[in-house]
């Protein structure tokens, strides 16, 4: 029997792929933004969804990836896409250094500290730290990515960029799906639901938490690279605390720990307001009410992760009990 879920996912994927053919540049750009935030949501999902760590400073890692790309590209002319792994690595190293001392903090404390971290990063960018970040004005003139000599300009031709982002999104979903169903993913889910029991079962909880942080940051750094290549100019405004809140809402409202949930969350929070322009100014107000209502009535999110079932060996179980 074919799973109904699979049919829906396939239909949605096909709609997503052909959508730019029917949409203008403006609405394709909206889809690009959805893709960027879906990627950010997925990377945050590793930390917040699987790891259960309340991390509200994800914009900091995003910013580091974007600024690394912008600085290296504008001063040395190295093509943007070549910098993709480096942007991720720099963000990952930063996460390693920052998260190491705070990883043991309890949920709500971690939340506050990560807010502090993202604010310090923003202030550092505004203050033009090391004379590299261009201060409050940011950095202009970042090159567009090129593939086989073909330039993909995110502003002039968002449709091309759409397929670049979609390819990366598909790659990300595959990697994260495999991650979720690996030993690593299971360990993370276990320690987030009961860290004492996980520790008792021999799981190195702080090691796994740190690994989740670094992977999430690595991915956010790479998304920062694609973002910088898309809009070609970046400023500290794009990486404020509110960006972190938006990513956080995407994961929590969509369904923490669920890849389809996060994708839906990105669509609802980034995409939907574009189609209801009259409600634009009430956008955040509505999200605020949604957060409160969601916690009261459906704390697991709109599309929560499917409960994983493990095949048990009934025969051997009977032998033991008899």
């Amino acid at each position: 029997m074919i799973d109904l879920r699979m049919i829906i996912y396939a239909a949605v994927s096909v709609c997503w792929l052909v959508a730019p053919l029917f949409l203008g540049n403006y609405h394709t750009d909206v889809l690009n933004n959805i893709a960027i935030y879906a990627l950010l949501g997925l990377s945050l999902n590793i930390i917040l969804g699987y790891g259960g760590m309340f991390h509200m400073g994800h914009a900091a890692f995003f910013a580091i990836g974007a600024y690394a790309t912008a600085i290296i590209n504008t001063s040395y002319g190295i093509p943007v896409l070549w910098l993709l792994p480096l942007s991720g690595i720099l963000a990952g190293v930063f996460a390693l250094v920052v998260a190491r001392p705070i990883i043991h903090l309890r949920g709500d404390y971690l939340l506050i500290v990560t807010i502090g971290m993202v604010e310090i990063v923003r202030i550092a960018l505004v203050n033009n730290v090391f004379g590299l970040t261009g201060g409050a004005n940011g950095i202009f003139g970042i090159a567009s990515p090129t593939i086989f000599g073909h330039q993909i300009n995110g502003i002039v031709n968002p449709k091309h960029y759409f397929y670049l982002l979609t390819a990366f999104l598909a790659f990300t979903i595959t990697v994260f799906y495999l991650l979720e169903h690996s030993r690593f993913g299971r360990a993370l889910k276990f320690l987030s639901s009961d860290s004492v029991a996980a520790e008792g079962s021999g799981i190195d909880t702080s090691g796994y938490k740190l690994a989740a942080f670094v992977i999430g940051a690595f991915w956010a750094g790479m998304v920062g690279n694609l973002y910088a290549g898309k809009i070609t100019f970046i400023s500290p405004e794009s990486f404020s605390f509110w960006e972190s809140v938006v990513m956080f809402m995407i994961v929590i409202l969509g369904g923490a720990g669920s890849i389809p949930g996060v994708l839906l969350g990105a669509f609802l929070i980034i995409g939907l307001p574009e189609y209801f322009h009259g409600l634009q100014q009430y956008r955040l107000l509505i999200f605020g009410f949604a957060l409160v209502a969601m916690m009261i009535f459906r704390p697991q999110g709109i599309l929560p992760p499917k409960q994983h079932t493990y095949a048990t060996d009934n025969a051997s179980e009977k032998k033991v009990s008899s």
């Binding site: 955040l284 107000l285 605020g288 949604a290 957060l291 409160v292 969601m294």
Partner: peptide, 17 residues
């Protein structure tokens, strides 16, 4: 406890907006 924290965040957004 963290559900209440998210709810608090929602309330904060409601108030400021």
């Amino acid at each position: 406890r963290l559900s209440a924290v998210v709810s608090a965040l929602g309330a904060s957004i409601i108030f400021s907006n």
